[in-house]
Design a protein around this nucleic acid. Structure first.
Lengths: 212, 212
DNA sequence: GAATAATTTAACTAAATAGTTAAACTTTTT
DNA sequence: AAAAAGTTTAACTATTTAGTTAAATTATTC
């Protein structure tokens, strides 16, 4: 193996320092939160030292801001893709919302709790205000629900309550996972299975609750 | 006003130092979490200095443990009262569970997010393990649901999923309140009104979803 | 291949925060 | 009222953690 081959291979396998930092920052911040995370932990996780962290990202706040914004966006990314669609029926939208949010949570188990908690502890803070404005979920879904009620397709329900219900059923299990697991003696595998079932179960549950 | 009258009056109005500390510790810990809370903030909030805090409660950990255990218990206290009852029907239990958990969350707005988040960040830790064991929700409810399915009173559903649904619908809105508010432009009063409505709405929603 | 720029480190400083001490003050007991 | 116990404080120390510096190393450009 020549020298250049070694380098090419290394580049394919190993991430750049910046990417390594972002990976470990994601991991540490989402697990421990802003106040619980330690720059030293992030550096250790990335296999570098603290000075290099500050070389790439001036401060903890700056690094956090990047991770938090990325996380907030990711949390609702799949939703915004189709929520305004004119082609999908309300029931189809509900099915997709549930499936997408559960899939997102399964792929990123700490993400929902992280975003929710930082908003909680810092709701007035500038970061949350900025990010909050960007991700206001469309009023078109609310209108879609209201239309369905008006047309007698579903029973009367406050559209906002229905939206809250869909989000609650999809995401709460992941947010409260540790309590549920202790509470009900559920292993990791059992939990994953339950959540996989929920992709269909929750949509059915919601549709049964609202159809005439 | 005599000297003794002054003292009697003061005792009625003012809390003991220990109670003042617990009050402010509750406030600061539930808002900021273990890692975000500062002993100085707790002292300031109680109108005392840090040394006195350490006089009453040896360390931050000790004080936190007390507050956290109290909070975890409070979070499910009302539930455990009636959940095993033989007199109540399943639907009555569902109505009470929803109403109690929403009422509890309205009275203690930061409590659910606090408990959930600390479990998340510390699920392996000794505190969570100890507290977790104490609050395992009864299997009798699960059995009650299973019986209702077997007797054909409700449509087939995994009892664990139904339990998760009830908890999700009752508590998620409070956990995700800051995001919901920014997302849907909802004031404090509007939010309180929505949650008041949910006490009935959620029970209806669940019952409609499961009844034949 | 020398010069320049980018990357990385060890060792440091600065700031924040938990926890301690010794003395003063207050209340209760004898 | 003297002694003892309980309460409170100001000023302190110890520890943790974010952030800096200057020098060494590596990669890139001319």
């Amino acid at each position: 193996m020549t020298h250049t081959e070694e380098i090419t291979l290394a580049k394919e396998i190993e991430l750049s320092t910046e990417e390594k930092i972002l990976h470990s920052a994601r991991k540490v911040f989402t697990k421990k939160g802003l106040s619980g995370a330690r720059m030293q932990d992030i550096a250790d996780e990335a296999g570098i030292n603290k000075a290099l962290l500050h070389y790439y990202f001036r401060s903890k706040e700056k690094l956090f801001e990047k991770i938090f914004e990325e996380a907030s966006t990711k949390m609702f990314a799949k939703l915004t893709e189709f929520i305004d669609s004119k082609e999908l029926s309300l029931f189809e939208k509900i099915e997709k919302m549930v499936e997408n949010q559960i899939a997102m949570s399964m792929e990123n188990p700490f993400l929902p709790a992280f975003v929710i908690n930082e908003f909680h502890q810092n709701a007035e803070g500038s970061i949350c205000q900025t990010i909050g404005r960007k991700m206001s979920v469309s009023h078109k879904l609310i209108e879609h629900i209201q239309e369905a009620v008006n047309q007698g397709l579903i029973r009367p329900i406050n559209p906002i309550q229905l939206f809250i219900n869909i989000m609650s059923l999809s995401m709460f299990p992941f947010v409260s996972k540790p309590i549920l697991q202790i509470n009900m003696n559920v292993t990791e595998e059992q939990f994953a299975l339950l959540m996989e079932q929920r992709k269909k179960d929750v949509a059915d549950f919601v549709i049964r609750a609202i159809k005439l």
